[in-house]
Design a binder for these strands. Structure first.
Lengths: 200, 200
DNA sequence: CGCCTTCTGAAGCGATCGATTCAAAAGTGG
DNA sequence: CCACTTTTGAATCGATCGCTTCAGAAGGCG
């Protein structure tokens, strides 16, 4: 019913993924509650009827936009976790955060951080969704660092969970700084000093 | 006109500061846009007429609540900046952030971070206000660390702005982690390792 | 071509948004 | 006790919220 496409009928006049990317930018800039249906449909270039028929309601639209975020602006995470050493993983994660949150062609900051940090009743579910999203991010780093300990890349007394929390906290902080207009250069300089103490 | 109190007339039936503290909690939990006038007045225990007469509109109410936040939950900053050494300043700032953002009796996280990180048109002014609020926070730390360099507390080649950005980014990150439900203990452990690399 | 499915634009649903008005209630000072 | 000032509750403003409905336009398929 979802991915099923009947062969017949009038074909859709817009590209779904492109519409989702447009909606993503609105959610990124204005947050889940701050983005109105009028904002979203205008940016997508479609009517509310078309949106509800193909994407679902506002909440489902956000979930799909978040998936696009994972595949696009946030895709650097997968590549970073595949780096050969824990230090290079951490370096790539911070560099990726800085690049994504300060890109001039996109809203500054991180969708997963700023779209629903504090919400009213209407945004409670999306807030919980993003809490999970962020916690999942920490877990992936922790698991990667645990592997580094197992492989001898990190010293045996290193604490993978705490190191992961450190990197993840810096990522979240970078997102907030970027939303405040801090430049990529200043953030990168800070990230360099932050990793100078890395255990070896 | 503001602080002027005529001796005559029916006296106010509620305490202004207590009402502001109640409103503060609502803004803290739900954000500026997510908090409705109905939420706010219900929490304050007054009607909208009383609110508009004594506190002003929603935006002015938030500005006054933010002032209460500075004097209350965020007051640890002033004490931290008065610590005798840069390391102790940084330690106190992180410990204060963790304590305030994970206090069980208050909303988790930081008002200045989560109340208006991304907003629609209605919250644009408050978003700009909090951008200034956060940037001011960084500047105060930077000035304090510059003094530490001048006094020889920090080595001459230390970069006060970058160190301040480091501490301030950790504070912002801690606020996000707390909003995700991370415990004070785990954050404190992370903060301890984060400061192990402090220049000396 | 003509049936038939699907999509689209427009109108409008009830609810809630922030904000305002007004008359009655409540005290204070003379 | 009365006149005067201020507060308070209730009703209500137009605008916008997310969401739905519906008739007609549009194009694939036999």
């Amino acid at each position: 019913m979802e991915t099923r496409r009947r062969a017949t009928g009038r074909p859709r006049a817009f590209d779904v993924d492109e519409a989702l990317d447009r909606a993503l930018l609105v959610f990124w800039e204005q947050g889940f509650e701050g983005a109105s249906l009028a904002n979203l449909t205008e940016a997508m270039g479609i009517s509310t009827a078309s949106m509800y028929a193909t994407l679902g309601n506002k909440e489902q639209l956000f979930r799909k936009a978040l998936r696009r975020y994972d595949e696009g602006p946030s895709a650097y995470v997968v590549a970073a976790l595949a780096e050969p050493t824990a230090l290079r993983v951490a370096t790539a994660l911070l560099a990726g955060s800085i690049r994504t949150t300060t890109c001039p062609e996109q809203p500054h900051g991180c969708l997963g951080v700023q779209a629903a940090l504090a919400t009213g009743e209407a945004g409670r579910e999306i807030r919980a969704l993003l809490v999970d999203w962020r916690n999942k991010g920490h877990e992936r780093i922790r698991d990667r660092f645990q592997r580094a300990v197992d492989e001898g890349d990190l010293p045996p007394d290193a604490n993978p969970a705490s190191l992961a929390r450190y990197v993840h906290t810096l990522q979240a902080g970078i997102a907030v700084q970027a939303a405040s207009g801090v430049s990529a250069g200043e953030l990168q300089e800070m990230a360099d000093t932050a990793l100078r103490s890395w255990p070896h």
